[in-house]
Protein backbone atom coordinates (compact mmCIF):
# COMPACT_ATOMS: atom_id res chain seq x y z
CA UNK A 1 0.00 0.00 0.00
CA UNK A 2 1.53 3.29 -0.99
CA UNK A 3 1.10 6.55 0.86
CA UNK A 4 -1.68 7.96 -1.27
CA UNK A 5 -3.90 4.85 -1.09
CA UNK A 6 -3.28 4.88 2.66
CA UNK A 7 -4.31 8.52 2.83
CA UNK A 8 -7.47 7.84 0.90
CA UNK A 9 -8.27 5.06 3.39
CA UNK A 10 -7.73 7.54 6.24
CA UNK A 11 -10.00 9.95 4.46
CA UNK A 12 -12.82 7.40 4.16
CA UNK A 13 -12.28 6.48 7.78
CA UNK A 14 -12.55 10.12 8.80
CA UNK A 15 -15.81 10.55 6.87
CA UNK A 16 -17.09 7.38 8.52
CA UNK A 17 -16.27 8.71 11.97
CA UNK A 18 -17.98 11.99 11.19
CA UNK A 19 -21.18 10.33 9.94
CA UNK A 20 -21.00 7.78 12.74
CA UNK A 21 -20.69 10.49 15.36
CA UNK A 22 -24.00 11.95 14.16
CA UNK A 23 -25.55 8.47 14.35
CA UNK A 24 -24.14 8.25 17.85
CA UNK A 25 -25.79 11.51 18.94
CA UNK A 26 -29.13 10.21 17.64
CA UNK A 27 -28.55 6.74 19.09
CA UNK A 28 -28.01 8.26 22.54
CA UNK A 29 -31.59 9.51 22.46
CA UNK A 30 -32.89 6.09 21.40
CA UNK A 31 -30.90 4.26 24.01
CA UNK A 32 -31.69 6.56 26.93
CA UNK A 33 -35.41 6.48 26.20
CA UNK A 34 -35.29 2.70 25.87
CA UNK A 35 -33.27 2.31 29.06
CA UNK A 36 -35.54 4.48 31.16
CA UNK A 37 -39.00 4.39 29.57
CA UNK A 38 -38.55 0.85 28.19
CA UNK A 39 -39.94 1.82 24.80
CA UNK A 40 -38.66 2.29 21.28
CA UNK A 41 -39.44 5.82 20.23
CA UNK A 42 -39.61 5.39 16.48
CA UNK A 43 -40.53 9.06 16.08
CA UNK A 44 -37.06 10.01 17.34
CA UNK A 45 -35.63 10.23 13.82
CA UNK A 46 -38.34 12.65 12.78
CA UNK A 47 -37.52 14.97 15.65
CA UNK A 48 -34.14 15.41 13.92
CA UNK A 49 -35.91 16.57 10.78
CA UNK A 50 -38.06 19.00 12.79
CA UNK A 51 -34.91 20.39 14.40
CA UNK A 52 -33.34 21.02 11.01
CA UNK A 53 -36.51 22.74 9.73
CA UNK A 54 -36.76 24.93 12.84
CA UNK A 55 -33.19 26.13 12.47
CA UNK A 56 -33.58 26.70 8.72
CA UNK A 57 -36.81 28.65 9.22
CA UNK A 58 -35.23 30.79 11.91
CA UNK A 59 -32.38 31.70 9.59
CA UNK A 60 -34.45 32.40 6.48
CA UNK A 61 -37.44 34.09 8.16
CA UNK A 62 -35.76 36.08 10.96
CA UNK A 63 -32.18 36.23 9.72
CA UNK A 64 -30.98 34.72 12.97
CA UNK A 65 -27.33 33.62 12.98
CA UNK A 66 -26.82 29.83 12.83
CA UNK A 67 -25.93 29.48 16.51
CA UNK A 68 -29.12 31.25 17.60
CA UNK A 69 -31.11 29.11 15.15
CA UNK A 70 -29.54 26.00 16.71
CA UNK A 71 -30.53 27.13 20.20
CA UNK A 72 -34.10 27.74 19.06
CA UNK A 73 -34.15 24.29 17.44
CA UNK A 74 -32.94 22.72 20.70
CA UNK A 75 -35.67 24.44 22.69
CA UNK A 76 -38.29 23.58 20.06
CA UNK A 77 -37.34 19.90 19.87
CA UNK A 78 -37.13 19.58 23.65
CA UNK A 79 -40.69 20.89 23.95
CA UNK A 80 -41.79 18.67 21.08
CA UNK A 81 -40.23 15.54 22.63
CA UNK A 82 -41.74 16.18 26.06
CA UNK A 83 -45.13 16.90 24.49
CA UNK A 84 -45.06 13.72 22.39
CA UNK A 85 -44.28 11.69 25.50
CA UNK A 86 -47.02 13.38 27.51
CA UNK A 87 -49.75 13.21 24.88
CA UNK A 88 -49.01 9.99 23.01
CA UNK A 89 -46.96 7.65 25.20
CA UNK A 90 -47.83 8.40 28.82
CA UNK A 91 -51.50 7.39 28.57
CA UNK A 92 -50.33 4.00 27.28
CA UNK A 93 -47.75 3.39 29.97
CA UNK A 94 -49.96 0.96 31.82
CA UNK A 95 -51.37 -0.64 28.65
CA UNK A 96 -51.20 -4.39 28.74
CA UNK A 97 -49.35 -4.78 25.45
CA UNK A 98 -46.05 -3.05 24.66
CA UNK A 99 -47.18 -3.17 21.03
CA UNK A 100 -49.68 -0.38 21.69
CA UNK A 101 -46.97 2.16 22.41
CA UNK A 102 -44.78 0.89 19.58
CA UNK A 103 -47.56 1.37 17.06
CA UNK A 104 -48.31 4.80 18.52
CA UNK A 105 -44.66 5.75 18.04
CA UNK A 106 -44.84 4.75 14.39
CA UNK A 107 -48.01 6.83 14.11
CA UNK A 108 -46.31 9.85 15.67
CA UNK A 109 -43.48 9.43 13.17
CA UNK A 110 -45.89 9.62 10.21
CA UNK A 111 -47.72 12.52 11.84
CA UNK A 112 -44.51 14.55 12.10
CA UNK A 113 -43.53 13.74 8.51
CA UNK A 114 -46.92 14.74 7.17
CA UNK A 115 -47.11 17.90 9.24
CA UNK A 116 -43.71 18.89 7.88
CA UNK A 117 -44.91 18.11 4.36
CA UNK A 118 -47.94 20.35 4.89
CA UNK A 119 -45.97 23.22 6.44
CA UNK A 120 -42.69 23.15 4.51
CA UNK A 121 -43.57 21.31 1.31
CA UNK A 122 -41.80 18.32 -0.19
CA UNK A 123 -38.47 20.13 -0.65
CA UNK A 124 -35.66 19.44 -0.86
CA UNK A 125 -34.43 22.53 0.94
CA UNK A 126 -30.79 23.48 0.82
CA UNK A 127 -28.76 26.01 2.77
CA UNK A 128 -26.18 28.56 1.80
CA UNK A 129 -22.68 28.22 3.14
CA UNK A 130 -23.02 31.05 5.64
CA UNK A 131 -26.17 29.43 7.04
CA UNK A 132 -24.24 26.31 8.04
CA UNK A 133 -23.45 25.95 11.70
CA UNK A 134 -19.80 26.20 10.70
CA UNK A 135 -18.34 27.20 7.35
CA UNK A 136 -14.98 28.00 5.84
CA UNK A 137 -12.32 26.09 4.02
CA UNK A 138 -11.28 22.63 5.19
CA UNK A 139 -8.19 22.00 7.26
CA UNK A 140 -5.56 20.49 4.94
CA UNK A 141 -2.93 18.06 6.16
CA UNK A 142 -0.06 16.06 4.58
CA UNK A 143 0.49 18.48 1.69
CA UNK A 144 -3.09 18.34 0.58
CA UNK A 145 -3.40 14.55 0.83
CA UNK A 146 -6.00 14.82 3.59
CA UNK A 147 -8.66 17.51 3.92
CA UNK A 148 -10.82 17.63 7.00
CA UNK A 149 -13.89 19.80 6.73
CA UNK A 150 -14.74 22.11 9.59
CA UNK A 151 -18.11 20.47 10.10
CA UNK A 152 -16.35 17.12 10.65
CA UNK A 153 -14.18 18.68 13.32
CA UNK A 154 -17.20 20.29 14.94
CA UNK A 155 -19.15 17.00 14.93
CA UNK A 156 -16.30 15.18 16.64
CA UNK A 157 -15.98 17.94 19.24
CA UNK A 158 -19.75 17.78 19.83
CA UNK A 159 -19.85 14.04 20.40
CA UNK A 160 -16.94 14.25 22.85
CA UNK A 161 -18.63 17.05 24.82
CA UNK A 162 -22.01 15.30 24.77
CA UNK A 163 -20.49 12.02 25.89
CA UNK A 164 -18.60 13.60 28.79
CA UNK A 165 -21.61 15.65 29.88
CA UNK A 166 -24.01 12.70 29.79
CA UNK A 167 -21.63 10.38 31.60
CA UNK A 168 -21.13 12.98 34.29
CA UNK A 169 -24.85 13.67 34.57
CA UNK A 170 -25.94 10.05 34.82
CA UNK A 171 -23.21 8.86 37.17
CA UNK A 172 -22.58 11.88 39.34
CA UNK A 173 -25.82 13.78 39.85
CA UNK A 174 -28.88 13.11 41.96
CA UNK A 175 -31.21 13.27 38.94
CA UNK A 176 -28.87 10.97 37.04
CA UNK A 177 -28.98 8.40 39.81
CA UNK A 178 -32.76 8.69 39.81
CA UNK A 179 -32.64 7.82 36.09
CA UNK A 180 -30.51 4.75 36.71
CA UNK A 181 -32.86 3.72 39.50
CA UNK A 182 -35.95 4.08 37.30
CA UNK A 183 -34.22 2.17 34.51
CA UNK A 184 -33.50 -0.75 36.82
CA UNK A 185 -36.63 -0.92 38.98
CA UNK A 186 -39.46 1.55 38.59
CA UNK A 187 -41.37 0.61 41.74
CA UNK A 188 -38.30 0.58 43.94
CA UNK A 189 -37.35 3.99 42.53
CA UNK A 190 -40.78 5.35 43.49
CA UNK A 191 -40.31 4.06 47.01
CA UNK A 192 -37.22 6.27 47.20
CA UNK A 193 -39.37 9.26 46.29
CA UNK A 194 -38.37 9.38 42.62
CA UNK A 195 -41.12 10.68 40.34
CA UNK A 196 -41.09 8.18 37.47
CA UNK A 197 -43.14 10.32 35.07
CA UNK A 198 -40.91 13.31 35.71
CA UNK A 199 -37.80 11.23 35.14
CA UNK A 200 -39.16 9.89 31.85
CA UNK A 201 -40.03 13.45 30.72
CA UNK A 202 -36.49 14.53 31.51
CA UNK A 203 -35.15 11.65 29.44
CA UNK A 204 -37.28 12.65 26.48
CA UNK A 205 -36.14 16.25 26.90
CA UNK A 206 -32.48 15.26 26.79
CA UNK A 207 -32.95 12.87 23.87
CA UNK A 208 -34.88 15.44 21.84
CA UNK A 209 -32.39 18.22 22.54
CA UNK A 210 -29.68 15.91 21.22
CA UNK A 211 -31.85 15.15 18.18
CA UNK A 212 -31.97 18.88 17.41
CA UNK A 213 -28.19 19.08 17.59
CA UNK A 214 -27.91 16.04 15.33
CA UNK A 215 -30.40 17.54 12.88
CA UNK A 216 -28.51 20.80 12.55
CA UNK A 217 -25.13 19.06 12.22
CA UNK A 218 -26.50 16.61 9.66
CA UNK A 219 -28.08 19.37 7.58
CA UNK A 220 -24.83 21.35 7.62
CA UNK A 221 -22.84 18.29 6.56
CA UNK A 222 -25.34 17.02 3.96
CA UNK A 223 -27.36 20.08 2.93
CA UNK A 224 -30.54 18.53 1.60
CA UNK A 225 -33.66 18.57 3.75
CA UNK A 226 -37.04 16.93 3.13
CA UNK A 227 -39.77 15.79 5.53
CA UNK A 228 -38.29 12.26 5.24
CA UNK A 229 -34.70 13.24 5.96
CA UNK A 230 -34.80 12.07 9.57
CA UNK A 231 -36.14 8.65 8.82
CA UNK A 232 -33.06 6.83 7.49
CA UNK A 233 -30.54 8.28 9.98
CA UNK A 234 -33.14 7.45 12.65
CA UNK A 235 -33.23 3.80 11.62
CA UNK A 236 -29.43 3.65 11.36
CA UNK A 237 -29.11 5.19 14.80
CA UNK A 238 -31.55 2.63 16.14
CA UNK A 239 -29.37 -0.09 14.62
CA UNK A 240 -26.34 1.57 16.19
CA UNK A 241 -28.04 1.57 19.59
CA UNK A 242 -28.88 -2.13 19.30
CA UNK A 243 -25.41 -2.86 17.97
CA UNK A 244 -23.80 -1.19 20.98
CA UNK A 245 -26.28 -2.70 23.42
CA UNK A 246 -29.59 -0.92 23.76
CA UNK A 247 -29.80 0.97 27.05
CA UNK A 248 -26.04 1.53 27.23
CA UNK A 249 -24.67 5.06 26.78
CA UNK A 250 -21.11 4.09 25.79
CA UNK A 251 -22.68 1.39 23.60
CA UNK A 252 -24.65 3.98 21.63
CA UNK A 253 -21.52 6.04 21.08
CA UNK A 254 -19.29 3.15 19.97
CA UNK A 255 -22.13 1.55 18.01
CA UNK A 256 -22.84 4.79 16.13
CA UNK A 257 -19.23 5.43 15.22
CA UNK A 258 -18.59 1.82 14.15
CA UNK A 259 -21.71 1.90 12.03
CA UNK A 260 -20.62 5.09 10.29
CA UNK A 261 -17.18 3.62 9.60
CA UNK A 262 -18.56 0.33 8.27
CA UNK A 263 -21.02 2.13 6.05
CA UNK A 264 -18.41 4.46 4.57
CA UNK A 265 -15.75 1.83 4.03
CA UNK A 266 -18.32 -0.43 2.37
CA UNK A 267 -19.26 2.38 0.01
CA UNK A 268 -15.62 3.01 -0.81
CA UNK A 269 -14.16 -0.46 -1.18
CA UNK A 270 -16.93 -2.85 -2.16
CA UNK A 271 -17.98 -2.93 -5.82
CA UNK A 272 -21.28 -1.07 -6.17
CA UNK A 273 -20.88 -0.49 -2.43
CA UNK A 274 -23.06 2.58 -2.31
CA UNK A 275 -26.05 0.44 -3.29
CA UNK A 276 -25.36 -2.38 -0.85
CA UNK A 277 -23.79 -0.45 2.05
CA UNK A 278 -27.03 -0.48 4.02
CA UNK A 279 -27.40 -4.22 3.50
CA UNK A 280 -23.85 -4.66 4.78
CA UNK A 281 -24.63 -2.54 7.83
CA UNK A 282 -27.57 -4.77 8.70
CA UNK A 283 -25.57 -7.93 7.98
CA UNK A 284 -22.95 -6.78 10.49
CA UNK A 285 -25.70 -6.09 13.01
CA UNK A 286 -27.10 -9.59 12.62
CA UNK A 287 -23.63 -11.09 12.94
CA UNK A 288 -22.88 -9.15 16.13
CA UNK A 289 -26.23 -10.07 17.65
CA UNK A 290 -25.63 -13.75 16.87
CA UNK A 291 -22.41 -13.65 18.85
CA UNK A 292 -23.48 -11.18 21.53
CA UNK A 293 -27.28 -11.10 21.76
CA UNK A 294 -27.22 -8.13 24.14
CA UNK A 295 -25.02 -6.07 21.79
CA UNK A 296 -21.42 -5.00 22.31
CA UNK A 297 -21.98 -3.26 25.65
CA UNK A 298 -25.25 -4.92 26.63
CA UNK A 299 -25.66 -5.73 30.26
CA UNK A 300 -26.05 -9.34 31.15
CA UNK A 301 -28.62 -9.47 33.90
CA UNK A 302 -26.88 -10.28 37.13
CA UNK A 303 -28.11 -13.25 39.07
CA UNK A 304 -29.00 -12.20 42.59
CA UNK A 305 -28.03 -14.47 45.48
Amino acid sequence: MNFSTFMSFVSYLKDGISLGAVYAIIALGYTMVYGIAKMLNFAHGDVIMVGAYISLTMMTKTGAPPVVALLVAIVGCTLLGVTIEFVAYRPLRKASSPLAVLITAIGVSYLLQNLALKIFGAGPESIRDEQKIISGSPVVLFNGQLAISRITILIVICIIIIMCALTWFVNRTRRGHAMLAVSEDRDAAQLMGVNVNGTISLTFAIGSALAAVAGVLLFSAYPSLTPYTGSMPGIKAFVAAVFGGIGSIPGAMIGGILLGIIENLAKAYIPSGSQVSDAIVFAVLIFVLLIRPAGLFGKNIQEKV
Partner: peptide
Amino acid sequence: AHKIVEMGIAHVPEGRRVFSQL
Protein backbone atom coordinates in the same frame (compact mmCIF):
# COMPACT_ATOMS: atom_id res chain seq x y z
CA ALA B 1 -45.96 6.19 45.67
CA HIS B 2 -43.23 8.77 45.15
CA LYS B 3 -44.79 11.16 47.66
CA ILE B 4 -45.16 8.60 50.45
CA VAL B 5 -41.57 8.55 51.60
CA GLU B 6 -41.59 12.28 52.24
CA MET B 7 -44.62 11.83 54.48
CA GLY B 8 -42.58 9.60 56.77
CA ILE B 9 -43.16 6.03 55.58
CA ALA B 10 -40.35 3.86 54.21
CA HIS B 11 -40.93 0.52 52.52
CA VAL B 12 -38.40 -2.32 52.47
CA PRO B 13 -39.81 -4.32 49.57
CA GLU B 14 -40.09 -8.07 49.20
CA GLY B 15 -37.03 -9.49 47.49
CA ARG B 16 -34.94 -6.48 48.64
CA ARG B 17 -34.96 -4.72 45.24
CA VAL B 18 -31.63 -2.96 45.68
CA PHE B 19 -30.30 -1.15 42.60
CA SER B 20 -27.79 -3.76 41.54
CA GLN B 21 -25.91 -1.59 39.03
CA LEU B 22 -25.34 1.17 41.58
